[in-house]
């Protein structure tokens, strides 16, 4: 039985899941929760593929934000096997781990909407209009959330010696 979603859905997951996982990770602050969340959202996308295939990433982003803000709505449903066990997350470099903990800790301290605005604006580099679409709010609200969130994030991160000019990692990822 062939699937009408065909290779397009597969290719979307293969190409965009890493990016979406990064967003999910910063939104949830927990790798396993992020993977559960991403899988939930991609399954939802699978079901609605015909309707959303013209802009699947925008749909996925919005679903990630909604679900991360309303965490009570979703719960892990893969007790049998965490996808976290499959990922290649850790380079085990102390500085990478330290940066991650620092950032996650700082983001966790933000209200969910501020966190979402900061992540979409500064990790995804999305224009305000797209962030507003993902968050289901006005552009003004996005600016306000991002501004406040950024100020608090800066405050939390500024004292860290880990904040330094960013250099490439050696390969063009």
């Amino acid at each position: 039985m062939r699937d009408s979603r065909g290779a397009e859905f597969d290719d979307f997951v293969r190409t965009r899941s890493a990016v979406l996982l990064r967003v999910a990770f910063l939104l949830t602050g927990d790798r396993h929760a992020a993977e559960d969340l991403l899988q939930e959202v991609l399954e939802q996308l699978y079901v609605r593929w015909r309707r959303v295939q013209s802009s699947p990433e925008a749909y996925a982003r919005r679903a990630l934000v909604n679900r991360s803000i309303n965490r009570w709505r979703w719960r892990a449903r893969r007790p049998e096997q965490s996808l976290g066990d499959h990922d290649g997350v850790a380079r085990d470099h102390a500085d990478t781990v330290a940066v991650r903990e620092l950032v996650v800790g700082a983001l966790r301290a933000l209200p969910a909407r501020q966190r979402a605005a900061v992540v979409l604006r500064y990790l995804e580099d999305l224009p305000v209009v797209d962030v507003a679409a993902a968050m289901g709010c006005s552009e003004g609200a996005v600016k306000s959330h991002a501004s406040r969130g950024l100020a608090r994030l800066r405050g939390a991160l500024a004292e860290s010696s880990l904040v330094m000019p960013i250099t490439g990692t050696g390969s063009s990822r």
């Binding site: 790798r31 991609l42 960013i166």
Partner: peptide, 24 residues
Amino acid sequence: DVRGILHRATDDLVSPPGLLAEVR
């Protein structure tokens, strides 16, 4: 700097090999 540190915190995250099959 903010962009950089968010990327540093997540650049190593890769989606798992089994994700597509699990999602489908």
